[in-house]
Amino acid sequence: MQKVAVAQDPLAASTDVDPALLRELVAHLRQDRTPLREEWTRRITDERLLSVMTPEEIFSEVTAVYDNYVDALETGSIEALERYARNLSERIIPRGVETHEVLGVVLLLRDVLARSLFQKYQDDRVLMNQVLDAYEPAANRIAVTVGVSFVQERERVIRQQQLAIRELSTPVLKVRDQLLILPIIGALDASRARQLTEQLLNGIRENRAKVVVIDITGVPGIDVDVANHLVQAVRASGLMGARVIITGLSADIAQTLVNLRVDLTMMQSVGDLQGGIEEAERQLSYAVTRSGATSPDSRA
C-alpha cells in the first residue's frame, strides 16, 4: 500500500483498512471483470447516459476506467485514475458530455460493484460488512476524484474559451505597411483592456507598425479603470515607437473621460474611423521628415 499518496486526501483517514480484505476485494473485481464491465455498460445505456458516444466507445472507456478503478483500490494511489479522468474529460467535454452524466456513470459503477459484493458475500454477513467497510470509503474517494477531475477540466475549458472569445473580439488588422487598426467591439473591463494592450503591443512588434488606429465606436461605455488602461496602452505603444490615434469616441465617453480627469495629453483623437485612417496615412507619409512620439518638440 502506498500510504504516501493517500495521506493528502481528506477521506484518507477512513481508508485505513485491513490489507487482506482489500486484496480479496480486488481479486474478486479482477475475476469478474468481464460480466461487471458488461453490466455497467448496460446500466449506462439504459439510463441514457453518455448518449453522444457509440456503444463501442462507451465499452472501451468503461474498460479503461474499470481497470484504473481497480488499480486505485489496490494501490491506494489515485494519481493514474486522476490522469485518465482528466484525459477522458478533455476528450468528451468538446462533444457535449454533461457533468450529471459523468457523476451518474461513476455512481453506477459504485452500485454495480456493491451489488456484486452483496451477492458474493450474502451467506456471510460479518465478512460482507467488513468487505463493504473496506470498499465504501475507497469507492467514494474514487467517485469524488473522477467527478472533480471532470468539473476542473470543464472549468478550465470554459475559461480558455472565454479568453479565445475575447481575443476574437479584438482583431488586430494590418491595413498596410506600418499601419494597424484595432476595432474594439463590446464592453471593456479591466481584464479585457489588459489583454487588448498585450495584443496591441505584440501587433506593433510583429507588423513593425508606426501608427495604430484604435476605433472604439462599438464600446458602450468606459469607467475610470478602463480609461486608465487605454491611456497606458497608448503610452506603451509610444515607448515602442508607434503613435496611437483613437477614433469613435462618443460624446458620452468623451465627457466621462474629462470628468474622470484621465490624463489625455498622450491621446490623439479623430472623429471617426475613416478620418483616423486618413490622419494615419498623412502621418506615415510625413514620417520620414518627422521624429518620434514621445518628445513635445519633435514636430520640427
Partner: peptide, 13 residues
C-alpha cells in the same frame, strides 16, 4: 495571480 491570465491557467494545469 489573476484568475483570467493564460499564464495562471497553464500554471494551474
Amino acid at each position: 495571480c489573476r484568475f483570467d491570465d493564460v499564464g495562471t491557467l497553464l500554471g494551474q494545469r
